[in-house]
Design a protein around this nucleic acid. Structure first.
Length: 141
RNA sequence: AGAGUCAGCGCAGGCAGUUGCGGACGGUGGAAUCUCCAUCCGUCUGAGGAAAGUCCGGACUCCCGAAAGACCAAACCUGCUGGGUAACGCCCAGUGCGAGCGAUCGUGAGGAUAGUGCCACAGAAAGAUACCGCCCACGAGAGGGAUAAAACCUUUUCUUCGGUAAGGGUGCAAAGGUGCGGUAAGAGCGCACCAGCAGCAUCGAGAGGUGCUGGCUCGGUAAACCCCGGUUGGGAGCAAGGUCAAGGAACAAGGGUUGGUCUUUUUCCUGUUCUGUGUGAUGGCGGUAGACGACUGCCGCCAUAGAGAGCCGCUUGAGGUAUUUGGUAACAAAUGUCCCAGAUAGAUAACUGCCCUUUGAGUGCAUUGCACUUAGAGAACAGAACCCGGCUUAUGUCUGGCUCUUCUC
RNA sequence: GCAGAGAUGGUGUAACGGCAGCACAAAGGUCUCCAAAGCCUUUUGUCCGGGUUCAAAUCCUGGUCUCUGCG
């Protein structure tokens, strides 16, 4: 019952609690996070435990919050907002499929590289899966 | 049929399924009983004609105390006329000029006799001059005719003083053009036509149109300075700005203004006196070269606490839509009706099927064509960020009018 | 989102509306045993349309691209 319930929660993906929002969060991930590259995407990841070293007791109390994900796409990828938005949506949609298998307590930033303009949905899905496995964020199956 | 041109208060793929996002409302759960937060459930709703470029004009907000007015200054690609509009550099109708066989299109279209500047090279000269040339006169020389010899007649060369602007050459441009007359040679010197200017008459609301007459003519450039008319407080822009420590009354004097000077009204600040309520907050004071809501120190408040956070601004508006009336039209008025995105690392997506368009192949009816099956391709430009009115640029498709050409009847 | 600046050979920069210069680089030659440096020569350009003007890198106008600032 409990499992089903958490699955439902994860299926909601990328609703407000699962989004990375503030500039501070992004900067933290950039400075101290892992880095994994693929042909069209770059993944930066930071686990929650590394973020709050100073107060481990407090962390235990909170348990690990759901993972938060941010997508970064530069104007260098494409000048046109329509294309940038489409890529963001496709990545978001792909992440939704992967989310049930995602470990909690991570902060992830996915950076889109300029070569990604010509990719379609399934390529994104595949690349994201590989990236997340290599960063050990994905629980495997 | 082809080519072209204009208009469209024309459209912006549709349907179904699975998963999923923003907003509003209602229910539900938890803190708690003012409310706040959030999982889940239900209902409704969710990008554009250009949302774009940010090129103009507003609305709104704050700062320079405010508002109104006069003169000067300054700024303005504001610039044919009349109208529309909240306003505009926009729109509508018209005039002139230019382009096109035409439908139609383009137009920065005030002033060059207010002044100044510039017009490279070339050329004599680029605000009107005279290089070559043409011509007259005087003088000198030479040849010829004639003569006894001169005078004289004639041809030609040169100098000087004049006349001339037809011709030559230069140039984007040379002082109205063409023709005839005229003259020593020439010239609007005269005449005819054309172009331009002025005056008068007439039509028009006006820009202008038409006609007549006249004297005879005056380079281009104002998207060079400028002159004239017209318009305008200046600056910043929703990252504007707001989020409570009061309010009221009386007195007298001084001070505060937008590029400058001034006038009128109002208001604020400072001082004194009186009256008198309420509250615990994004509070107060300092430092970081200045400042705040950044960072930071101290004090204060709170059950506790965060920070480029939250909330307001933020969507009812010069709104959409239907009808009627006025107007050639842009547009305006009246009445009815509707509420139609409000995100903030920024919501509309992903996948599948069918319909749609088109191409190839096959089959049937069958001369073009139509129907069915199958395979492939295609569906543009492009994403609200405070909101409106335009302009410009990008772009798929549909409908209708008109023009020209060709063919057939 | 808002505001501002700019674009000249391969690179960095000049230029009253009148022939687009300069330096470095590149290529060729000379010098040298071979190079470098020096010397001589050559090639390559006004971001793209439209307009004003006799004439536009320059003035006006529509786009494209690049860069910068902003609680």
């Amino acid at each position: 019952m409990g499992q089903a319930r958490s699955a439902v929660r994860f299926a909601l993906a990328l609703s407000k609690p699962n989004r990375l929002k503030h500039r501070k969060d992004f900067n933290g991930v950039y400075q101290r996070g892992l880095r994994r590259n693929s042909a069209h995407l770059t993944l930066r990841a930071l686990h929650y435990s590394k973020l709050s070293k100073q107060s481990p007791e407090l962390e235990k109390l909170l348990e690990s919050p759901p993972s938060q994900i941010g997508i970064s796409i530069s104007k260098k990828v494409s000048k046109r907002a329509v294309i940038r938005n489409r890529i963001k949506r496709q990545i978001r949609s792909a992440l939704r499929h992967l989310l049930p298998r995602l470990a909690s307590g991570w902060k992830l930033v996915i950076i889109v590289r300029p070569q990604a303009v010509e990719c379609d949905y399934f390529q994104f899905l595949q690349e994201l899966e590989q990236l997340l496995i290599s960063a050990e964020v994905l629980n495997g199956d």
